[in-house]
Design a protein around this nucleic acid. Structure first.
Lengths: 117, 117
DNA sequence: TGAAATGTGTAGTAAATAGGACACATGACA
DNA sequence: TGTCATGTGTCCTATTTACTACACATTTCA
C-alpha cells in the first residue's frame, strides 16, 4: 500500500517532465494552498488534506478523486450521502460484497447500468 | 427527516414505559458517558456523539447502528474501509444505485448472497 | 552572475470534535 | 416529609483537523 504523499509526488514529478508548470509551488498556488503545506503533504510530514483540497489536487494532476480520497483514508461525501439515505440497504449490500471478486461486482454494475429492474 | 436526538429520546422513553432502568441517567452510565452529555444529545443541544458512542447507544436501545449513524450524519468506519480498498469499483456501483428503487437493490443483495458468480 | 524560482524548516492558529465536572431545581415515593 | 433519583444549566478542556505565514538555502537559466 503506497501512501498519499508519495502518490502525489510521483504523479506531479511525472507530469513535470513534460511540463515545467508542475512545480510544487505552481501546483500549490493553482489549487489554492501554501507551497510549504503541499511540500509537507508530499513528504507525509502532515496528514492528508481535507476532502475539498484532495479533490482539487486530483483534478489538477488528472487522478481519480475517489482513489486519492481512499489513499487519504476518506470516502467521498457524496457517496456517504447516498448511503445515509438508505443505511440498512447499502450497509447490507456493501458488507455482502466485501469478499466478492472484482469481476463479479463489475457484472453487477453492468446489470444495473443496463437496467432491467 | 427526524434528527438524532429525538430518535434517541423517543426510543428511550418508549423502553422506559416497560422498564424504569431506561432513565437518561442510567442509560448514560451504562454506555459510559455523563448524564448531562446525554441530556444535551437528546435535546440536540450538541452535535451527535462519536461513532463509538453512537454504536454503544444503539446496542443499549436495540436500534440498528447503521441507521443511528446515518441520523448522526456518519457512515460506519467498517463500511468505509471496504469502500477504500476498491474505491473505483464501489464508487461506481454506489453512484449507479443512487436512483435505483429499494426492491431492485434488494434483488441484487439476494443474487449476491445466493452467490452465483 | 545575479535575479527569479524552487523546495523545505519552524512556528503558530482558528475552528471543530468529543466530551467531563459540578451544581441545581424538580419529582417520585416509602 | 425527608431522601433519593432524575433531567438539565453552566463552565471548562484536551485533541484533532486543516491549514497560514515567513524565512532560508539551493537551484536554474537568461
Amino acid at each position: 500500500m503506497t501512501h498519499f504523499g508519495s502518490a502525489i509526488r510521483n504523479r506531479r514529478e511525472h507530469l513535470r517532465q513534460k511540463d515545467r508548470r508542475y512545480s510544487l509551488r505552481q501546483v500549490a498556488l493553482r489549487i489554492g494552498i501554501e507551497p510549504a503545506y503541499l511540500s509537507k503533504i508530499e513528504r507525509c510530514d502532515v496528514a492528508p488534506p481535507s476532502e475539498a483540497t484532495t479533490i482539487r489536487l486530483a483534478r489538477e494532476l488528472g487522478e481519480d478523486p475517489d482513489v486519492l480520497l481512499a489513499l487519504a483514508g476518506k470516502v467521498s461525501s457524496d457517496l456517504q450521502e447516498i448511503i445515509r439515505k438508505r443505511p440498512r440497504l447499502f450497509a447490507e449490500l456493501i458488507r455482502q460484497l466485501k469478499e466478492v471478486p472484482d469481476h463479479a461486482i463489475l457484472r453487477v454494475v453492468r446489470e444495473v447500468r443496463d437496467g432491467e429492474w
